[in-house]
Simulated scan of single mutants.
Amino acid sequence: MIKWTAAALILGFLIDLLLGDPRWLYHPVRIIGNSISLLEKWLRKVFPATKQGEQKAGLVLVMLICAGSGLIPLLLLCAAYKIHVVLGFLAETFFCYQLLATKSLRDESMRVYRELKKKDLPKARYAVSMIVGRDTAELTEEGVTKATVETIAENTSDGIIAPLFYMAVGGPALMFLYKGINTMDSMVGYKNEKYLYFGRYAAKLDDIANYIPARISAWLMIAGAYITGMDGKNAKKIFQRDRYNHASPNSAQTEAVMAGALDIQLAGNAYYFGKLYEKPTIGDPLRAVECEDIPRANRLLYVSAGLGTFVFAALRLLAVGIWGLL
């Protein structure tokens, strides 16, 4: 099982680039998401609606989702390899493909771009609302573009580099465990009245799980900026200066690189659930934000993802080779 993971990683990435996430194929993250929703309803009934009660409920949620998202794929993979090595390899490849979001992130962001090109701001706002968590009803054209570029930058790590990293380290089971953690954070990791205590453990665990991948992603994007002819020097400068200009210790890592590579300013104040959150800016406004920054961001996304796939597969092969000599 161990020796086939690098090949499954590469093939899974290539299949994702080709197929993306077809709507007819039920996505495993939907299973994780539905499980989180059901468990949340049950746990809120079992535990009292107090600070301590909600924290305990949130901790139980984290333990159950982590156990399920990691162990179930591991058991399925072991069963597949026990039947035949080819079936096991195909299962590894399929799991890897399912948990990457390279093409789907590009496709969803380019829907926003096409509406902006048509000057249809209401449809552009709706399109961006499908991929961001902030309120979009009042966004200007510049605001829509910035929100799209920011989500491309953040999800370069969360949706691609981090899953590839965990696939290389521990195979599909660890990759699934990461997606379980990340999905919990996206559903309950909010600092609002409903989730401040219930989602605290999920948010903290997501910060831990993304700490290393976010920084690897940033350096891969800096390299990608040079390769694509963007402002690699400024990407590194803004990364080193602004990578902590966010409430999360990880989100600004890749956003800072993206802002520097494009020579624009990102982040700043935003509305979430009708409430204004004051946030620092990231990058310098060396030029005005324009809708063409969306395809530019996607080029950086693709190059960074390709670099990550190559690096992680190579390191996995090296590790397997060293392991074989021991």
Results as ranks from 00 to 15, higher is better:
residue 217 S to P: 12
residue 254 T to N: 06
residue 214 A to S: 13
residue 225 A to T: 08
residue 259 A to D: 01
residue 191 K to L: 15
residue 246 H to N: 14
residue 230 M to V: 02
residue 207 D to M: 12
residue 230 M to C: 05
residue 216 I to Y: 05
residue 207 D to G: 14
residue 235 A to R: 02
residue 216 I to D: 01
residue 174 L to D: 07
residue 262 L to T: 03
residue 180 G to C: 06
residue 211 Y to I: 07
residue 187 M to E: 10
residue 187 M to V: 04
residue 244 Y to T: 14
residue 178 Y to T: 05
residue 249 P to A: 12
residue 224 G to Y: 04
residue 266 L to R: 08
residue 205 L to W: 03
residue 234 N to C: 06
residue 228 T to H: 02
residue 240 Q to Y: 13
residue 264 I to G: 00
residue 258 M to I: 07
residue 241 R to G: 00
residue 249 P to R: 09
residue 187 M to K: 15
residue 227 I to K: 01
residue 191 K to Q: 14
residue 230 M to W: 06
residue 209 A to P: 13
residue 174 L to F: 14
residue 241 R to D: 00
residue 190 Y to P: 10
residue 255 E to S: 04
residue 253 Q to C: 15
residue 244 Y to A: 08
residue 237 K to I: 00
residue 233 K to H: 12
residue 174 L to Y: 07
residue 191 K to I: 11
residue 265 Q to Y: 09
residue 225 A to Y: 02
residue 241 R to F: 07
residue 217 S to M: 09
residue 256 A to Q: 02
residue 206 D to I: 02
residue 208 I to Y: 11
residue 268 G to A: 13
residue 266 L to G: 02
residue 214 A to Y: 02
residue 192 N to Y: 11
residue 202 A to K: 12
residue 243 R to D: 04
residue 193 E to P: 04
residue 181 I to A: 04
residue 242 D to H: 06
residue 226 Y to T: 03
residue 191 K to T: 08
residue 254 T to G: 09
residue 241 R to Q: 09
residue 249 P to D: 15
residue 212 I to P: 04
residue 194 K to S: 10
residue 244 Y to E: 15
residue 175 M to L: 15
residue 248 S to W: 08
residue 220 L to W: 01
residue 246 H to L: 04
residue 203 A to D: 07
residue 232 G to L: 03
residue 177 L to T: 11
residue 207 D to P: 10
residue 266 L to T: 03
residue 239 F to G: 00
residue 221 M to C: 09
residue 254 T to V: 15
residue 241 R to Y: 10
residue 248 S to K: 13
residue 216 I to P: 07
residue 183 T to D: 03
residue 217 S to F: 06
residue 243 R to I: 04
residue 253 Q to T: 13
residue 250 N to I: 03
residue 257 V to G: 02
residue 244 Y to D: 15
residue 183 T to F: 11
residue 255 E to K: 03
residue 258 M to T: 05
residue 266 L to Y: 05
residue 198 F to D: 01
residue 224 G to R: 00
residue 195 Y to V: 06
residue 205 L to Y: 03
residue 215 R to N: 05
residue 208 I to T: 13
residue 182 N to A: 13
residue 205 L to T: 11
residue 208 I to M: 10
residue 238 I to E: 10
residue 209 A to C: 12
residue 174 L to W: 09
residue 216 I to R: 00
residue 227 I to R: 01
residue 192 N to V: 15
residue 214 A to P: 11
residue 245 N to T: 04
residue 252 A to C: 08
residue 208 I to K: 12
residue 252 A to F: 00
residue 181 I to L: 11
residue 216 I to H: 01
residue 226 Y to A: 06
residue 207 D to Y: 08
residue 254 T to E: 03
residue 214 A to E: 06
residue 199 G to S: 09
residue 202 A to I: 11
residue 176 F to W: 12
residue 178 Y to D: 09
residue 192 N to I: 15
residue 245 N to I: 01
residue 244 Y to N: 15
residue 196 L to R: 07
residue 267 A to V: 06
residue 254 T to Y: 05
residue 267 A to F: 07
residue 229 G to V: 10
residue 223 A to E: 02
residue 229 G to M: 08
residue 256 A to T: 02
residue 223 A to S: 12
residue 183 T to C: 11
residue 198 F to Q: 04
residue 259 A to Y: 00
residue 253 Q to H: 12
residue 240 Q to T: 06
residue 184 M to I: 13
residue 206 D to A: 07
residue 264 I to Y: 04
residue 213 P to F: 12
residue 195 Y to R: 09
residue 200 R to I: 12
residue 257 V to L: 08
residue 256 A to W: 00
residue 268 G to Y: 06
residue 215 R to T: 09
residue 253 Q to S: 15
residue 189 G to F: 01
